[in-house]
Design a protein around this nucleic acid. Structure first.
Length: 216
DNA sequence: CTCGAGATGGCCT
DNA sequence: GGCCATCTCGAGT
């Protein structure tokens, strides 16, 4: 199945990026996901800071979403998803990789947006040292685990408050949403319902840094 | 550029 | 014990 495209970055070009507050994240994961496109995610550590401009994200619901880690209820692993909005939810997958999400919706309800891909716009040299296998800079954060790795986000960041501008992870979102982005197929939802029922994967169409891994 | 296969460990049933 | 919200590498077009 081929994906359809849509307009890109209309109105957002030149719009300032601002630090979001809790209310900004207290919305549906789909709304937040669209708002996060073209946002800056910054992570600082003792080594320095890396900032990624997001080009691809994916929304996850809670008990109503079979593709969500929270589908079967709260566990120690997914506890951050049930916590306050604007915090980081980090999980370990495939025995190797960390992936970073931002929690959405009211405290106590589980939903989040997975950060799938982006472009490193600050700290490229540090990101290269963390991702020595990247052949080109566009691959530094072109995938969920690649992005988390480039930012230096690991399990220790689980639950971190991304609304604190001075925190280890901080955000600046477009004052005018990038908008006009197609919903692509999701991973993790088998069968024909994947795209039809949960078209919650969003990207900046034509952006060279989007992940090349697309669900079958 | 694309495709296919293997690695690898925590979580959930 | 099976299942992954994946990545890298090698080989083929």
């Amino acid at each position: 199945m081929r994906e359809r495209s849509a307009a890109v970055l209309e109105g957002a070009q030149g719009a300032p990026r601002v630090a979001p507050d809790a209310a900004w994240f207290t919305r549906s994961p789909q709304e937040v996901a669209l708002g996060l496109l073209d946002a800056h995610v910054r992570a600082k550590s003792a080594d320095g800071a890396v900032t990624v401009r997001l080009s691809e994200v994916e929304a996850y619901g809670g008990a109503d979403d079979p593709g969500s880690h929270a589908f079967r209820g709260r566990t120690a692993r997914n506890a951050a998803m049930f916590g306050p909005p604007g915090h980081v939810y980090v999980y370990f997958t495939y025995g190797m990789h960390w992936c970073a999400n931002l929690v959405t919706g009211p405290d106590g309800e589980a939903s989040a947006v997975l950060l799938r891909a982006g472009e490193v716009v600050e700290g490229v040299e540090l990101a290269r040292t963390r991702r020595p296998t990247s052949r080109t800079d566009r691959d530094l954060a072109s995938g969920p685990a690649r992005l988390a790795n480039a930012l230096g986000i690991r399990g220790g960041h689980d639950g971190a408050d991304a609304l604190d501008p001075g925190g280890a992870v901080s955000l600046r979102v477009r004052e005018v949403p990038a908008g006009g982005v197609a919903g692509g197929p999701r991973t993790g939802v088998s069968g024909d319902g994947g795209l039809a029922r949960y078209p919650w994967r969003y990207r900046l169409e034509g952006d060279p840094t989007v992940s090349r891994y697309r669900a079958a």
